[in-house]
Computed example of a mutant assay.
Amino acid sequence: MGAVEARLAELGLELPEIVPPLAAYVPAVLDGSRVYVSGQVPMVGGVLAETGAVGEGEGFVSPERAKELAAVCALNALAAVKSVVGDLDRVERVVKVVGFVASDPSFTGQPGVINGASELFGDVFGDAGRHARSAVGVVALPLGAPVEVEVIVHVRD
């Protein structure tokens, strides 16, 4: 077990199995020193952890729960990175995170939701986990997921 996976264990987290593609794409592509990770939804054990739009009140996924699900997406992204580089200790920096939040039209807290992913990367990688980011509200996501996260990381040879 490398240092990154040991850090995950210290945080009480376990790297999941890679989420198989849901359509005609691959989970991650290594291109030179960059890994481009396809959008990851909050799959846990092959099942979507929750469905629905994020918002306030009855019938919506709460922003707090959506933030937790964004962290699940980030873990799935790390599994995708490992699938193409073999060892997460090769990650030199998380470069960019793009988060999508299926949102009630009145919901404007997308940045807080995607903090779930950003904070996980910071907890795991320290300063190397600080990244550029976008957090976007959308009408719907694949399979009815409330959140989706894609990542670009820089790796060393």
Results as ranks from 00 to 15, higher is better:
residue 98 V to T: 13
residue 95 V to S: 10
residue 124 V to A: 04
residue 84 V to N: 14
residue 143 L to I: 09
residue 141 L to Y: 07
residue 136 V to C: 04
residue 32 G to I: 07
residue 137 G to Y: 08
residue 147 V to P: 00
residue 95 V to F: 07
residue 69 L to Q: 03
residue 150 E to Y: 04
residue 25 Y to W: 13
residue 7 R to D: 08
residue 123 D to H: 08
residue 114 I to E: 02
residue 40 Q to R: 08
residue 81 V to H: 02
residue 118 S to C: 05
residue 92 E to P: 04
residue 69 L to T: 02
residue 146 P to C: 11
residue 29 V to P: 04
residue 70 A to S: 06
residue 150 E to D: 07
residue 84 V to A: 12
residue 145 A to H: 03
residue 100 F to C: 01
residue 66 A to D: 04
residue 57 G to R: 11
residue 119 E to D: 12
residue 45 G to Y: 05
residue 3 A to T: 09
residue 79 A to L: 12
residue 89 D to T: 12
residue 12 G to D: 09
residue 108 T to V: 15
residue 105 P to D: 09
residue 77 A to G: 14
residue 152 I to F: 04
residue 46 G to S: 05
residue 152 I to M: 07
residue 19 V to T: 15
residue 50 E to R: 09
residue 58 E to V: 15
residue 138 V to M: 10
residue 13 L to Q: 14
residue 44 V to L: 11
residue 20 P to Q: 09
residue 110 Q to T: 15
residue 46 G to R: 06
residue 143 L to N: 09
residue 97 V to N: 02
residue 89 D to V: 14
residue 35 V to E: 12
residue 122 G to S: 12
residue 146 P to T: 08
residue 150 E to I: 03
residue 101 V to I: 12
residue 53 A to Q: 13
residue 14 E to Q: 12
residue 2 G to T: 14
residue 115 N to W: 00
residue 84 V to I: 15
residue 55 G to C: 07
residue 101 V to T: 05
residue 56 E to M: 13
residue 109 G to E: 15
residue 134 S to W: 02
residue 64 E to M: 07
residue 142 P to S: 06
residue 75 L to H: 05
residue 45 G to V: 06
residue 76 N to I: 00
residue 26 V to P: 07
residue 68 E to A: 03
residue 141 L to V: 06
residue 68 E to C: 00
residue 135 A to Y: 05
residue 99 G to Y: 02
residue 24 A to T: 13
residue 155 V to I: 15
residue 51 T to P: 04
residue 29 V to W: 06
residue 79 A to Q: 09
residue 86 G to E: 10
residue 147 V to C: 02
residue 131 H to P: 03
residue 77 A to T: 10
residue 135 A to F: 05
residue 124 V to C: 06
residue 83 S to G: 15
residue 116 G to L: 00
residue 73 C to A: 13
residue 73 C to I: 10
residue 72 V to Q: 00
residue 69 L to P: 01
residue 63 P to G: 15
residue 95 V to Y: 07
residue 37 V to K: 02
residue 154 H to V: 13
residue 54 V to G: 02
residue 111 P to A: 06
residue 105 P to F: 11
residue 62 S to E: 02
residue 102 A to V: 02
residue 3 A to E: 15
residue 13 L to D: 00
residue 121 F to V: 00
residue 29 V to C: 09
residue 122 G to Q: 08
residue 6 A to S: 11
residue 56 E to V: 14
residue 121 F to K: 00
residue 45 G to K: 05
residue 81 V to M: 10
residue 10 E to M: 08
residue 27 P to F: 12
residue 149 V to C: 03
residue 119 E to G: 05
residue 42 P to C: 04
residue 21 P to Y: 09
residue 129 G to M: 05
residue 142 P to D: 05
residue 152 I to V: 12
residue 16 P to V: 12
residue 116 G to N: 01
residue 39 G to C: 08
residue 55 G to H: 04
residue 86 G to W: 12
residue 114 I to W: 03
residue 131 H to L: 05
residue 127 D to C: 10
residue 46 G to C: 08
residue 89 D to Y: 11
residue 74 A to D: 00
residue 35 V to L: 13
residue 1 M to H: 11
residue 98 V to S: 12
